[in-house]
Design a protein around this nucleic acid. Structure first.
Lengths: 116, 116
DNA sequence: GATAGTACTTACCCTAAAGTATGTACCATG
DNA sequence: CATGGTACATACTTTAGGGTAAGTACTATC
């Protein structure tokens, strides 16, 4: 139960800025680790532990937090196998798959501009 | 003269994450107001004051800060006419123009997913 | 000499995002 | 009954991005 905050200018501006559809999109795929997570999942369904190993530097808190956000935004699917020890697989949703051309375009653009 | 900071994990992770070309791209076009600024400039060269009026909510500090970053990243060009009162025009650089298909793709994606 | 108009600049504050550290649940195995 | 393995959860701290408010430079015009 998060309290309703007084609308600070910061909050107001968040709303204003969301009128821009590009901003809307950036808010779904932004965040420090989301591109890396999405990249991993573009290669196919992946377990939680695999993601953690595949993305050096990410903490468990950040990993799970971003996974939850991506799930809420309907970009990925979380599949829990009812076994023990737990086995949880993440994969791109149909909606998430529609991001791949955009991510690829951004990857190409980035590769072409930076030094290495 | 900004002091050289001890490499906090936060800093380290920034480096790590930049290995991802998508992250590199997002860092150029991210920031709350950059998409809106770029959108305005996609319509053609625009003066500082026009930008400020065209983007409701933005403060002068944020506008100039983002303009400077975009200029440093060679995405926009700053053209100062030597008159008084000052007359400064901003426009997309050739490099900046290469972003338009990506921004358009993101705009379409965003428009298709959100409510209104 | 006060005001206006454009394009900034700078010192300070506040908050949201990211990071740290530790704990939980479940069962199998030794 | 302690340990290991998987997939989380949560309280707390730090940092960087964004916002506030006020000031600057230049000249023309009243």
């Amino acid at each position: 139960m998060t309290a309703i905050k007084e609308s600070s200018t910061n909050q107001q501006n968040k709303q204003i800025v969301q009128a821009c559809p590009v901003t809307y999109t950036l808010e779904r795929i932004g965040g420090r680790w989301k591109p890396l997570i999405l990249y991993q999942l573009m290669a196919g369904a992946t377990r939680y532990g695999q993601l953690r190993k595949a993305i050096p530097g990410i903490t468990e808190k950040m990993l799970i937090q971003h996974l939850r956000e991506l799930e809420v935004d309907n970009l990925i699917v979380r599949d829990v196998k009812p076994v023990v020890p737990p086995h949880v697989e993440y994969s791109l949703s149909e909606n998430g798959i529609t991001l791949t051309p955009i991510l690829q375009a951004m990857a190409e653009w980035g590769l072409a501009r930076r030094g290495i």
